[in-house]
């Protein structure tokens, strides 16, 4: 075998083995929750959902910290230069792709907080495939949130 062919085989091996090595499952990276300002009982949670496996869909999210947790997308109203949030029943997480929930974009909205949130909250995610993931999301103050989303 020539050197070139060997390199190619090794490359192919890693390409095929990569999903197996990663456990093939959906995973959640960098979850965080915005600390609710005093006097308010709504906030939002953010994270990156990575899917090395087949196409899947986030269908439900819940948090013991709030009465309601829903999936929201943001839409611009072109006619009035204003913006609205719209609740969606699910969010697609295509195979080999990631879904980023971030400030000003798709997010998890937490309504009816049972009290001021501190330190961290636990979010439960359920996917169409049946996969369930539980993540601990740290609660970030406005300054910490700025640092997270706009690192210098």
């Amino acid at each position: 075998m020539t050197m070139k062919k060997k390199t190619l085989l090794v490359f192919l091996f890693f390409l095929l083995a990569a999903p197996l090595a990663r456990g093939e499952g959906i995973s959640v990276k960098d979850p965080w929750v915005r600390q609710n300002p005093p006097g308010t009982s709504v906030t939002a949670a953010y994270m990156v959902i990575e899917n090395p496996g087949p196409d899947d869909e986030l269908v439900e999210i819940s948090c013991g910290c709030s009465r309601e947790a829903s999936l929201h997308v943001i839409e611009m109203k072109e006619d009035s230069d204003s913006m609205a949030m719209r609740e969606v029943a699910s969010m697609a997480v295509p195979s080999g792709a990631s879904l980023a929930l971030s400030p000003g974009g798709p997010h998890v909205m937490l309504m009816g907080l049972s009290g001021d949130i501190k330190e961290s909250v636990v979010l439960e995610l359920r996917f169409r495939s049946g996969a369930r993931i539980s993540v601990k999301a740290p609660v970030l103050s406005p300054r910490a949130a700025q640092k997270r989303t706009h690192p210098h």
Binding site: G39, T40, V42, M83, M85, P103, G104, H107, M111, A145
Partner: peptide
Amino acid sequence: TNCPDICPT
């Protein structure tokens, strides 16, 4: 103040 995402951001 009841705005969960864009206003606090």
